[in-house]
């Protein structure tokens, strides 16, 4: 796979953030055991973060040679990286993860499936309900009964 000649929206900023992250990772790695010896626990993290720092610099310098993207500015970045569908779906996932400890796995997953299928498939709530109920049934039989995975019950039901 060859790198495209034009920048992707926000690619330069992203490369800069990678370098900053690598620098921070190197600093944290140094904090583990400093330069006390060559076999301490911090040596490999320092080497790895050092590689990240160098390659991050190379990635950043590559972006400086590329042509500007067609869609630039914050709007272009948001449209490319965080389209509304991705943002909403990620928010839905965050709510799902937050709900599991209290509502339990099956109820949370059922609601996630219902909402997501209704929204993404756009065939109406009845189809979404049928699909989510069948899926939850299959997941329960397969994972709880066959694979014997103990799924979180949820504090509300205890």
């Amino acid at each position: 796979m060859k790198s495209p000649d034009t920048l992707r929206p926000g690619e330069q900023l992203f490369a800069l953030l990678l370098v900053c992250f690598a620098g921070y990772a190197f600093w944290e790695s140094y904090g583990i055991s400093g330069f006390k010896g060559l076999t301490t626990g911090g040596v490999m993290p320092m080497l790895a973060s050092g590689v990240m720092l160098v390659t991050g610099g190379v990635i950043l310098s590559d972006t400086l040679r590329k042509a500007a993207p067609l869609q630039s500015g914050p709007r272009g970045v948001i449209a490319y990286l965080f389209p509304l569908r991705v943002v909403l779906f990620t928010l839905l996932l965050s709510v799902y993860v937050a709900a599991i400890p209290s509502a339990g796995f099956l109820l949370s997953s059922g609601v996630l499936l219902f909402v997501a299928v209704w929204w993404l498939w756009q065939k109406g709530p009845v189809w979404a309900l049928v699909i989510s109920l069948v899926s939850i049934g299959v997941i329960h039989v397969l994972f709880r009964m066959v694979f014997q995975v103990v799924l979180p019950i949820g504090s509300l039901w205890r």
Binding site: F89, L93, Y96, V97, I100, F105, S109, L112, L113, A116, V117, L120, W121, Q122, I131, S135, I139, F143, F147, V149, L151, P152
Partner: peptide, 20 residues
């Protein structure tokens, strides 16, 4: 099978997998 059904299913299966 539409992706609109597959995508939420992948997420739920991933959640079971990570938890297990």
């Amino acid at each position: 099978c539409p992706r609109a059904i597959l995508i939420p299913m992948i997420v739920v299966l991933s959640a079971v997998g990570a938890y297990a």
